[in-house]
Design a binder for these strands. Structure first.
Length: 116
RNA sequence: AAGGUAGGUCGGACGACCGCGCCGAAAAGGUGAGGAAAGUCCAGGCUCCGUAGAGCAGGACGCUGGGGGCAACCCCAGAUAGCCUUAUGGCUAUGGAAAGUGCCACAGAAAAUAGACCGCCCACCGCUCGUUAAGAGCAGGGGCAAGGGUGAAAAGGUGGGGUAAGAGCCCACCGGCGGAAGGGUGACCUUCCGGCCUGGCAAACCCCGUCCGGAGCAAGACCAAAUAGGAGGAGAGGGACGCUGCUCGCCGACUCCUCGGGUAGGUCGCUUAGAUAAAUGGUCGUCGCCAGCCAAGAGGCUGGAACAGAACCUGGCUUAUAGACCUACCUUCCCU
RNA sequence: GGGCGGUUAGUUCAGCGGGAGAACGUCUCCUUGACGAGGAGAAGGUGGUUGGUUCAACUCCAACACCGCCCA
């Protein structure tokens, strides 16, 4: 994981809360549930469905977390978010460049209002 | 030089910056995926189950000799049979069918105690013709299993002799069986002799030999909230129900204390990687490899680089795998 | 991570080495004014894949693929 523990959602309860109360936004590759918070915490969870090969699953998680890390200094509001790759776009994501994934996530999070 | 066979090795290299897990009080620093980490097909360590000892059931393995290993299994050399390859060579199988049981569908007359549908046969018996005899005819009694046909398989095969027709009935060779001799540590092989023969399936049950107790780190050990329930004690209450018609006693709703079991959760187990929503990633530079394009050339530009990611550890097996290299050998072509 | 089970017609499943089956569904015909129900009939299968044992494999053996269940 390319993020320290303090930036990760670790407990089932927290993730459930984001699913129930957060707003969902979709892009070309990603679907993001976002729950803004007032306490200034930035936390993310990445959920990748079971794949045929474990290495693909791990790589998707790592790419998404890395993109989030690069965006980390630019957040204006605290939030909990859950990121899910869209099932149909997995192959595109695996071949994508870091720059593309970063831009994708940037767009979605801007619409959610947590990114400047 | 090209192609192939067998065996083995590697699985881009170095560096910078931004990050992550673990060690470290902190900083500095150190350390951090594979040959298969995979499938979970085997074996072992370890833990618990009763201390795992004996027997039964069940399971695994099975040509020979040697070696390694606790074991699974592996290595070397060889034997027999079948298959593939131009060739070198490779692959697969192999305890026992004369311990016993079982199965061999359909077809076919008959399928393991053999058997006779079409056939073949007038030597024998019988009948007919013939005066009798010689002889001729008839497949009724009977003889035969060569040929046809069925089948995966038809009870040794081929050839000759023989016969009424035939047959291991006799002979030669081959195959099988038994015995002897020789060779080999052995599986087994060779030769001679004998009598003339006795299917296949044990990846069917089984028998023989060797080995195996079961479950698995989500094993297991420890710490331990809240809530509910349990046990014990104290207090309060003597009211309801019940043991009983009455009394005592018991039970029991309330409060407090103590106790152990135990859930969430945590720690250990746990590792020269060691996590637990689970680290090993990203952006680049130089060099090397491959492909395409440009260029007279040095070279330049663009793109690509497999299979795949540890969760207790170890040893094997199997499967996936771009490309590169090494060794031995074979075939074809060219040159000397 | 570990331990098990399964894969046969469109679906749910049977099946003791030699014939591939049942129920429901589908289609056609009859019946009805029409539909349903009912009756008659038909089609539908590389038996997950690849090898092996056997004369013969859905069945026995092995490897692989996929699906599902259980264990804190």
């Amino acid at each position: 994981m390319t993020l320290p523990r303090e930036n990760r959602l670790l407990h089932t309860n927290e993730i459930k809360e984001v699913f129930e109360k957060g707003k969902r936004k979709r892009g070309r590759f990603l679907s993001i549930y976002c729950l803004p918070r007032e306490d200034g915490e930035y936390k993310i969870a990445v959920i990748v469905r079971k794949r045929k090969r474990a290495i693909e699953r791990n790589r998707l998680r790592r790419l998404i977390k890395e993109a989030y890390r690069l965006l980390l200094p630019r957040f204006s509001k605290g939030h909990h978010i859950v990121v899910l790759p869209l099932t149909g776009a997995v192959d595109n994501l695996l071949n994508a460049k870091m720059q593309d994934i970063k831009e994708e996530m940037e767009k979605i999070l801007k619409r959610s209002g947590v990114l400047r």
